[in-house]
Simulated assay, not measured.
Amino acid sequence: MLRGMYGAAAGMIAQQQRQEMLTNNLTNANTPGYKADQASLRAFPNMLLKAMDTASATPGRAPYIGELTTGVYLQERMPNYRQGDIQETNNSTDIALLQGVLPPTESGQPGGLFYTVQDANEELRYTRSSNFTLDGEGYLTTTEGFYVLGTDGQRLQVDNDEFRVSENGMITSAEGAALGQINVVYADNPMLLVKEGNGLLRLESEEGPLPTAIGNGAISFQLQQGFIERSNVDASQTMTEMMSAYRSFEANQRILQAYDQSMEKAVNEIGRIG
């Protein structure tokens, strides 16, 4: 009976974590460049049941009865790097990154393109946020103040918002002077990128920084100034999944309550000495 309680409790915990993930997705439905998370639920290893009485047992082997499940858990959260919709804003600091043709990968999963930025600790990070801004010194930054880097690894200083960005990321001033080129990098396996918050992604690999996509003939992309990439969260689908997670939580809760009532009856009635 206690194993059943543990299994129901494990199901409640897994659905609660899934609900929290879906709630976070829905909260960021209007966050530019946000990539929705997906959950992967997995069952704990099943336990084999065998009879212990020797009378009915085959010599040298106990009779096999069946399997006993031991619950489920949320194994991992995986971002969905599908391209979001493009929305026009007419702001010169909004620069959407449109993925084109990407080379096939060994895993069969699609790769991804990202901007390179510098976080508050001056460490290299990646992002798909496209609603940039300018700081007091004229540097191109994210809305959280993280510097956007160029192909030379340096911060991009554009001085004012009267600059132009070409389709390959080359930045020029209103007078036509070259100010640098936005560095777009390619991730062969985007699942190695870990979300840190504020739209930043950290690479979990010892192979060094991601290679630049500029100059790679197998990769095609386009930067669109005056546009932003919207979140790829499907609000209606997310709401449906939230209701499903809630119903599953309720079902496990009712099972747990039934076990609790059975335990209470066993203690107060069956175990009572007449």
Rank of each mutant, 00 (worst) to 15 (best):
E76L: 05
D161G: 06
E167F: 02
T93W: 00
G138M: 06
Y139R: 02
N28T: 06
T89V: 09
E88M: 15
R82G: 15
A36Q: 15
Y147Q: 04
N24E: 12
P45T: 08
G108M: 08
G138R: 02
A96E: 07
D119W: 14
G150Y: 07
V165T: 10
A39H: 02
A51S: 13
P45M: 10
P63D: 05
D161I: 00
Y34Q: 03
G71S: 01
P59E: 13
Y34H: 06
N90V: 01
V148H: 04
G60V: 08
A57G: 07
L134P: 09
G60N: 04
N25T: 05
T105C: 09
T89A: 04
E76C: 02
T116K: 11
Q83S: 03
T151W: 00
I65R: 07
E123F: 15
I86Q: 14
D37G: 14
Q38V: 12
T116W: 07
Q87W: 04
R155T: 11
G66N: 05
A29F: 09
L48H: 12
G71E: 01
P32R: 08
L49N: 14
T105Q: 12
G60Q: 01
P103M: 05
M78A: 06
T58K: 03
A96V: 05
M47D: 11
G100E: 01
A62P: 00
Q87H: 14
R164S: 09
L26F: 13
T143C: 02
T89K: 06
E67I: 02
G145W: 08
T141H: 03
A120R: 12
L140T: 05
P59I: 02
V117K: 04
G84C: 09
M47N: 09
L41S: 03
L97Q: 04
N30E: 15
G66L: 01
N80G: 03
D152T: 14
L149R: 01
D135Q: 02
L41T: 00
S56F: 10
E123I: 05
N91S: 12
E88V: 14
N91V: 04
G138H: 10
T93S: 13
G71V: 03
G84K: 07
L97P: 05
L156G: 03
L68N: 11
A36F: 11
A29R: 13
T58C: 00
Y115I: 10
D135C: 03
T70E: 09
A96H: 07
P103Q: 03
L124S: 04
Y81P: 05
D85N: 15
T27N: 15
T70R: 15
T70K: 12
